[in-house]
Amino acid sequence: MNRTPRAVDVTGLHKRYGDKLAVDGLDLHVDEGEIVAVLGPNGAGKTTTVEVLEGYRHRDSGRVTVLGEDPQAAGRAWRARVGMVLQDVAVGSESTVEELVAHYALFYPAPRDPDEVIAAVGLQEKRKSRARHLSGGQRRRLDVALGVVGRPELLFLDEPTTGFDPEARHAFWELIAGLRADGTTILLTTHYLDEAEHLADRVVVVTGGHVVAEGSPASLGGAAAHRSRVRWLEDGEPREVSTDTPTRIVGDLAARFAALGHAEVPGLQVLRPSLEDVYLELVGTAGRSSTADLEEALR
């Protein structure tokens, strides 16, 4: 087996459905032990990309290596090292939570303890419940339990917290922190910017089937995207300056207004862009998707 330090290595990935190009020259890598979030509006090609990496879909072209193997040719031993939390996937609804987790654990050579996994996803209370009686968020947590019970080295999470209430999302983030501490490599797609900011070592923004930006949540989009904006009122008019040195601008303003006899600069604001601002700018400039998509993306 050709082992590389990169858990996931993708170059020039293309995937077409009919005449629609879903993935268009995407490059992506995830190092061992890293947590990478793929952000992007609906239809950006996130799920297609993840499903190519999971071995569900055959690519049209490009080079793809996942844990040293080509996923579309990989076998059982490879699948034992990879955990997948997919979208729109049911379990036998007449089975209970503990039956399902224990059953899936049997498939793997060195599984986690099913009871501990159920506790880790916060379903102890529901262990005897049949899957069809679970709420949407609880079912998603069961998905996560089934994805990690095999003790994967690499975990794919495709929009794992959709339908979670804020409390469940924070509990889920703690679970991911636990997996990170174990050294699990994680590639997740998400609509939630705060989730990406909280969990990921690196964020990759995808639109139109290719990567438009990547970097740590703080550095995403480069220095220009992180320039602060200083706003104030002068002669009754709003003024705004975009700057890398907001402190100096504010100092200059204070001095100028003091010279005019004002102790305060009217309407003074210093705005630092949130990840959301940076993301919107990136997605907006890289081929605008429909407004509806963006609204959906920013739910």
């Binding site: 059953h103 050579p109 060195a110 996994v117 080295e153 703690e174 679970l175 636990g178 050294g183």
Partner: peptide
Amino acid sequence: MTAATLPATGPVRALPSPLRLGLARTAHE
């Protein structure tokens, strides 16, 4: 969270045999 206390890499063990899993599937089905 309990997952944090579990070691990430377990001992290297063989994959369960298809026959054994077939019986487990039978019971499940």
